[in-house]
Computed example of a mutant assay.
Amino acid sequence: MPRLILSRLVFMVLAGFLLLSFLFALFHMIPGDPARLMAGDNAPEELVQSIRRAYGFDQPLHVQYLSYMQRVLMGDFGVSNYTRQPVLEVVLPRIGNTAALAGCAMLFAMTVSLILGSFSAMFWGGPVDKGVTAFSLVGICTPVFVTGIIGIYLFGVYLRWLPIGGMSSWQHFILPVLTLGAYQAAMFTRMVRSCMVDALGRDFITTARAKGAPERRVVFHHALRNALLPIITLFGLGVGHTLGGSVVTETIFNWPGLGRLMVDSILTRDLPVMQGAIFFFAMIFILVNLLVDILYTWADPRVSYD
Results as ranks from 00 to 15, higher is better:
Gly245Val: 10
Gly212Glu: 07
Ala208Thr: 09
Ile232Trp: 03
Val218Ala: 14
Met122Ile: 10
Phe173Val: 01
Ala182Gln: 05
Val146Pro: 00
Ile152Pro: 06
Val138Trp: 12
Thr206Ala: 15
His241Lys: 10
Ala185Thr: 09
Arg202Met: 12
Gly240Asp: 00
Pro127Gln: 07
Thr207Gly: 07
Tyr158Trp: 14
Leu200Phe: 11
Ile232Asp: 08
Tyr183Val: 13
Gly139Leu: 05
Leu162Cys: 04
Glu215Asn: 06
Gly240Arg: 00
Trp170Lys: 01
Gly125Tyr: 06
Gly245Ala: 13
Arg193Gln: 13
Gln171Asp: 06
Gly125Thr: 03
Phe204Met: 02
Arg216Tyr: 05
Gln184Asp: 14
Thr233Asn: 14
Gly238His: 05
Arg209Leu: 12
Val247Trp: 00
Leu224Phe: 08
Leu228Cys: 05
Asn226Met: 09
Leu178Lys: 03
Ala182Phe: 14
Phe188Ala: 13
Gly126Tyr: 11
Pro214Phe: 05
Phe135Ile: 13
Gly156His: 03
Val239Phe: 15
Asn226Thr: 09
Leu180Arg: 03
Gly201Arg: 00
Val218Ile: 13
Gly201Leu: 01
Pro163Phe: 07
Leu159Phe: 13
Trp161Asp: 00
Val128Arg: 11
Ala210His: 07
Asp198Glu: 11
Phe220Cys: 09
Ala223His: 02
Gly131Arg: 04
Gly148Tyr: 03
Thr142Asn: 06
Pro230Asp: 07
Val144His: 03
Pro143Trp: 06
Lys211Asn: 06
Gly181Gln: 09
Ala210Trp: 03
Val219Leu: 15
His222Thr: 11
Thr142Tyr: 04
Tyr183Met: 12
Val219Pro: 01
Phe155Asn: 09
Leu224Tyr: 04
Met187Phe: 13
Ala186Ile: 03
Arg202Lys: 15
Ala182Asp: 00
Thr142Ala: 10
Ile164Gln: 12
Trp170Pro: 04
Arg202Ile: 00
Cys141Met: 13
Leu162Phe: 13
Val144Lys: 01
Asp129Ile: 04
His222Asp: 14
Ala186Asp: 00
His172Gln: 02
